[in-house]
């Protein structure tokens, strides 16, 4: 009997090459590679920051800002979609070079990655619940509260409402909203600017309840600590876009919110 081992299968003499070649071709066909200078990781499921629009392409405030920033810096950029919970590990692993995904600047995250200056001001987190509900936020007990996992909101819930309540975290923002709509949780804590359109679009079923909570800093670009050259380049481009009013204009377009980065 002929001796065949896995090693032979991979060697060029083997007939397996006949099989592997079309597979590689098929692999290339399913997605042609495009090499950009900088790859930007984003979640693509967090409107109005970043989302997939009707045409199937990434859109949103951060997509517009990222493209403007790369144009300013004179580099070619490409957005890559990545799940939220692995977005920092995959930045460190080099799957992309920077993160623009509505990520708040926090002390905890700054231990592993660096942030640019913020391109969106600190945004109070809000609670959303069924429109007819009423909660005493000073003394919350026996309630199911949800947030997206690995977020500042999830940490806040863990620190403040752990005793006597049930905490749930979700992989994606839309799952958390779906569970709130389905009544599986009583309250959802999330960024105010994310919840506003959700509450508006819920046809009166949901309402913002309780106080706004100041948790994280503003939203900034997440970057690898050892990527100093890229950090400087992008920080300069971002500063230029702030000064010429582009950042304010883009925030106004996506959030209908007045900011004043131009005169900082």
């Amino acid at each position: 009997m002929r001796k065949i081992k896995l090693k032979d299968l991979l060697s060029s003499r083997s007939s397996a090459r006949v099989l592997l070649a079309p597979m590689l071709v098929a692999g290339v066909l399913v997605q042609s590679a495009f090499a950009a200078d900088v790859r930007i990781g984003t979640e693509g499921a967090y409107p109005p920051w970043n989302f997939v629009d009707d045409s199937g392409k990434l859109a949103g405030f951060e997509i517009d800002l990222g493209n403007a920033m790369c144009e300013k810096a004179g580099i070619s950029c490409e957005f890559v979609q990545n799940e939220w919970d692995s977005i920092i590990p995959n930045l460190l692993a080099g799957n992309y070079d920077i993160i623009m995904a509505g990520m708040s600047i926090t002390e905890e995250r700054m231990q592993t990655i660096d942030f640019s200056s913020d391109y969106f001001p600190p945004d109070p987190s809000r609670y959303a619940a069924a429109a007819d509900s009423d909660f005493d936020f000073g003394n919350l007990k026996g309630v199911k509260i949800g947030a997206q996992g690995a977020t500042i909101q999830a940490d806040y819930l863990e620190a403040n409402f752990k005793d006597g309540n049930t905490l749930l975290t979700y992989e994606t923002p839309d799952q958390s909203v779906a569970d709130l709509m389905a009544g599986n949780i009583d309250i959802l804590l999330a960024d105010g600017e994310f919840l506003n359109p959700v509450v508006e679009g819920s046809a009166g079923k949901l309402a913002l309840v309780g106080p706004g909570v100041e948790i994280g800093g503003g939203v900034g670009i997440g970057m690898r600590k050892d990527d100093k050259e890229l950090q400087e380049k992008l920080s300069a481009a971002l500063a230029a876009l702030k000064a010429d009013g582009t950042v304010d204009k883009l925030i106004k377009a996506s959030f209908d919110k007045e900011t004043n980065y131009a005169n900082q």
Binding site: D53, A59, V177, M181, P197, V198
Partner: peptide
Amino acid sequence: LQIADIVQWAGKLGAANYFPAAGLVHGDWR
């Protein structure tokens, strides 16, 4: 493996959307 196959797209398309710029506003259609 983060391959955007039919299952991943179905989950994304069915996910509730409340943001008009991201397409038709609808509840959980998964």
